[in-house]
């Protein structure tokens, strides 16, 4: 499971300081799907990068399975799987070669990796083209290979960064099934998306990010109570309207 505590990160862009993430805290339990929501630029990706230890937070920390990013930013990645929008495949490698490569990158023992590969091949129905070069795969097949890639080291926590962007209905459906599967296996799932309709379907709890701050957090019921709106979309529109009416520099300062 994931605990994020008071994460804060600012970038300096052309002399101006942009606070990308401003004191974000949340926790995701086992077998829970947590939706990290927000419009583009809300700080979702930066938050994910801080969880992965790819970006060092200015302050705050993340704890995953007892390991904290500020003490062992690299070690924490053993416990994390990552699947994101732009994930590609290696055109010149076969599916098997690519998956075994990632097993090696996660320092999984070859014997265990072989076993897991077979298991995943069955789950995700990729067994028929395991020895085909990735360049010959269809979009849907590539997508399933990517999902398998995220599970080669059997991480307890899975981060999904906009996993359905650019996918058709069938593709999105595969992702939803995948999320269900993860949940059934007791994994903590952190789903970052701006597709609110999808989030409503699969997430157990939500965190609404806007300008780098966590505006609302809780189950759909909690959010309805807090905002008085029935759907996530309405809550968002409210947020953005607030933005236009009030001071526009919520997350920005010079």
């Amino acid at each position: 499971m994931i605990v994020a505590n008071e994460l804060r990160k600012q970038f300096s862009v052309r002399g101006k300081t942009l606070v990308a993430v401003n004191g974000v805290s949340f926790a995701v339990g086992n077998s829970e799907v947590y939706g990290l929501l927000g419009p583009n630029g809300a700080g979702k990706t930066t938050t994910l990068r801080m969880i992965m230890g790819l970006t060092e937070p200015d302050s705050g920390w993340v704890e995953i399975g007892g390991t904290r990013t500020d003490t062992d930013a690299t070690g924490i990645r053993h416990q994390l799987g990552l699947i994101s929008t732009n994930d590609g495949v290696y055109p010149w490698l076969s599916v098997r070669e690519m998956l075994m490569y990632f097993a090696d990158l996660y320092a999984v023992e070859p014997q265990i990796a072989k076993h897991r590969l077979e298991e995943l091949a069955e789950w995700l129905a990729i067994g028929s083209f395991l020895d085909q070069r990735c360049s010959t795969l269809s979009t849907g097949q590539k997508q399933r290979v990517t999902l398998a890639r995220g599970l080669m080291h059997d991480p307890p926590v899975m981060l999904l960064d906009e996993p359905t962007r650019g996918l058709d209905v069938v593709g999105s459906q595969t992702v939803f099934q995948f999320i269900e599967l993860l949940k059934a296996r007791g994994k903590s799932v952190l789903l970052s998306t701006h597709r609110l309709d999808e989030a409503e379907r699969v997430c157990d709890r939500f965190g609404l990010l806007h300008h780098g701050t966590m505006r609302y957090e809780g189950t759909l019921g909690d959010l309805r109570d807090q905002t008085g709106k029935a759907h996530l979309v309405d809550m968002f529109i409210e947020l953005i309207r607030e933005d236009r009416a009030g001071p526009a520099t919520l997350g920005e300062s010079d």
Partner: peptide, 14 residues
């Protein structure tokens, strides 16, 4: 460009 970099550097491999 192929989109494999992010997944690769997200692994714990030094």
């Amino acid at each position: 460009e192929r989109g494999t970099m992010e997944a690769m550097i997200a692994t714990p491999a030094p």
